[in-house]
């Protein structure tokens, strides 16, 4: 464990907590894409298959449980909670996210480190996570007015993967034979997808104006 990875995990945890806090306290999911949340639930479900078979550390197991429980409860809130579901704008959240799942799965079948079920599911979860934010970014561009919590949520989600890139660089130089091209490239693609959001987020923060994304 290194400081970049710990900071990345804490940032990721913060993004999930910000979202849960928003939904639980103000009972609203306005501006949140259910599709992105469903994709993230699928990402964690396929990545943490080894939750009960490979014990790495208490921290690792605990965080996996937190991410699994939080992502599925967010999906439940938006789909089934009698008040929250009313604020879900399904007419705007129209990204056909199922079109992301199949290509990622096919790609994982072709490009992976080991042709085993667990490894293919793990690789699939990496590719899927890289594109999971797309429905949310499309929704942000459509709804224009981004409330602070949603903006912070997306920012933290992008920031965590950027910190992970620093972690991969650190591990590459400190641990011999630590090479995971698939992880690195999908993590880089994921972070690049946030690039323009970061730019507008930083501009709004610097000029102290409300965050607006160009249509």
């Amino acid at each position: 464990m290194n400081i970049f990875r710990l900071a990345g995990d804490m940032t990721h945890l913060a993004s999930v907590l910000v979202l849960l806090l928003k939904i639980h306290t103000i009972k609203s999911c306005a501006g949140i894409s259910l599709k992105t949340q469903e994709l993230y639930a699928l990402v964690f479900a396929t990545r943490y298959l080894d939750l009960f078979t490979d014990y790495i550390s208490l921290y690792n197991t605990l965080m996996k449980l937190i991410f699994l429980v939080s992502s599925f409860s967010i999906v439940w809130y938006i789909r089934h909670h009698k008040i929250v579901r009313r604020s879900y704008d399904k007419d705007q959240d129209t990204f056909r996210h199922y079109f992301l799942v199949l290509p990622c799965f096919l790609l994982a079948l072709v490009i992976n480190e080991k042709f085993t079920v667990k490894e293919i599911m793990w690789t699939f979860s990496l590719y899927l996570e890289a594109v999971a934010i797309l429905p949310q970014l499309v929704l942000l561009q459509r709804t224009r007015n981004i409330d602070n919590l949603t903006g912070q949520y997306v920012f933290l989600l992008g920031a965590y993967r950027s910190l992970y890139i620093l972690n991969w660089i650190y591990r590459y130089f400190t641990e011999p034979h630590y090479v995971h091209w698939i992880t690195w490239i999908s993590g880089l693609v994921q972070t690049l997808l946030y690039a323009d959001f970061f730019y507008y987020y930083f501009q709004s923060w610097k000029n102290n104006v409300k965050l607006e994304l160009p249509a």
Binding site: R5, D54, I56, M63, E119, W122, Y164
Partner: peptide, 10 residues
């Protein structure tokens, strides 16, 4: 202890 290419990151 980590087996082979088991993934230790979240």
């Amino acid at each position: 202890t980590q087996k082979g290419s088991c993934h230790d990151e979240l």
